[in-house]
Amino acid sequence: MRVRVDQDACAGSGQCVMSAPAVFDQRETDGVVTLLDDGPDPRLHGGVRTAARLCPARAIALSAR
């Protein structure tokens, strides 16, 4: 799994941090998403998929390798 985030679109809702805190974080200055791990371990994939589904700004894109 390859994870990409669109920081321009991000609305800082925090849904991704709630879903997969090992993969996503928020910048302290403005809440914008930062990616901690763009190729997460398979045991994290469920949380990452939840994050992508719940992201209100549709700022998370997932692809196979």
């Binding site: 321009d8 609305a11 800082g12 925090g14 941090v17 709630m18 805190p21 928020q26 302290e28 200055t29 403005d30 809440g31 914008v32």
Partner: peptide, 17 residues
């Protein structure tokens, strides 16, 4: 919208809460 939102967003992150 996003410019204005980000001015306040630092205090409403998951970690801030």
């Amino acid at each position: 919208h996003i410019t204005h939102r980000r001015r306040m967003a630092a205090d409403f992150t998951v970690k801030s809460a």
